[in-house]
Simulated assay, not measured.
Amino acid sequence: MEFTMEDIKVGLKNTVTDKVTDKNTAKTMGSGSLEVYATPAMTCLMEKASTEALEPLLADGWTTVGISLEVQHKAATPMGMKVRAEAEVAAVDGRKITFTVKAFDEREEIGFGTHERFAVMKEKFMSKAAGKAKM
């Protein structure tokens, strides 16, 4: 079944939240030695905001996969603070969706960038991935 992207429009937005705990610090995640919100946790939250914006609009059997992420993490967030990530569709080019992404803690913007996702048929994608293990 071919899928159209007509429901995915520039300006579509989504926001997700997180809290800085010992599970998502740079020290725990291995991306640094300090107990502050890890860059990998921030980028994951940005991807989650993007993914969740699209999922309700996709046809059965379809999903999106991340294909690029370019971000700057510009401020530290200590343990206990809440974090939110916002994703907004900036462009749709065929099955490629480009987002602007931003992250904030309770005081300021802590990160920003762009994220691209690509719409794929789940079964076909997973079959191709599984084929690598057989080589």
Score class of each variant (00 low, 15 high):
Glu2Gln: 13
Phe3Thr: 10
Thr4Trp: 14
Met5Ala: 04
Glu6Cys: 06
Asp7Tyr: 13
Asp7His: 13
Asp7Met: 12
Lys9Met: 11
Gly11Asn: 08
Lys13Phe: 13
Asn14Ile: 04
Thr15Gln: 10
Thr15Arg: 12
Val16Asp: 01
Val16Cys: 01
Thr17Tyr: 14
Thr17Leu: 10
Asp22Cys: 07
Lys23His: 08
Lys23Ser: 09
Asn24Tyr: 04
Asn24Ala: 04
Ala26His: 10
Ala26Trp: 13
Thr28Asn: 12
Met29Asn: 08
Met29Arg: 06
Ser31Glu: 09
Ser33Lys: 15
Ser33Phe: 13
Glu35Cys: 11
Tyr37Gln: 03
Tyr37His: 05
Ala38Phe: 08
Thr39Asp: 11
Pro40Ala: 06
Ala41Asn: 03
Met42Glu: 03
Thr43Glu: 11
Thr43Phe: 11
Leu45Val: 00
Leu45His: 02
Lys48Glu: 12
Ala49His: 04
Thr51Ile: 10
Thr51Met: 14
Thr51Trp: 15
Glu52Arg: 10
Glu52Ala: 04
Glu52Met: 14
Ala53Phe: 10
Leu54Met: 13
Pro56Glu: 02
Leu57Trp: 09
Leu58Pro: 02
Leu58Trp: 12
Ala59Asp: 15
Ala59Pro: 09
Asp60Phe: 11
Gly61Thr: 06
Gly61Lys: 08
Gly61Asp: 05
Thr63Ala: 13
Thr63Leu: 09
Thr63Met: 14
Thr64Leu: 05
Val65Thr: 02
Val65Lys: 04
Gly66Phe: 06
Ser68Trp: 01
Leu69Lys: 00
Leu69Arg: 00
Glu70Gln: 12
Gln72Ser: 09
Gln72Met: 07
Lys74Ala: 02
Ala75Ile: 01
Ala76Arg: 12
Ala76Phe: 07
Thr77Tyr: 13
Pro78Tyr: 13
Met79Ser: 00
Met79Ile: 12
Met79Asn: 05
Met81Tyr: 09
Met81Asn: 03
Met81Phe: 12
Met81His: 06
Lys82Glu: 05
Val83Ser: 03
Arg84Tyr: 12
Ala85Arg: 04
Glu86Leu: 11
Glu86Met: 10
Val89Met: 05
Val89His: 01
Ala90Asp: 13
Ala90Thr: 14
Ala91Arg: 15
Ala91Thr: 08
Val92Pro: 01
Asp93Trp: 14
Arg95Tyr: 15
Lys96Ala: 02
Phe99Gly: 01
Thr100His: 14
Val101His: 03
Lys102Gln: 14
Ala103Leu: 04
Glu106Ala: 05
Glu108Ala: 08
Gly113Cys: 06
Gly113Ile: 06
Thr114Gln: 11
Thr114Tyr: 11
Thr114Leu: 11
His115Trp: 03
His115Asn: 02
Arg117Asn: 02
Phe118Lys: 01
Phe118Thr: 00
Ala119Gln: 04
Val120Pro: 00
Met121Glu: 08
Lys122Glu: 07
Lys124Tyr: 09
Phe125Met: 10
Ala130Glu: 15
Gly131Arg: 10
Lys132Cys: 03
Lys132Ile: 08
Ala133Pro: 04
Ala133Tyr: 15
Met135Asp: 13
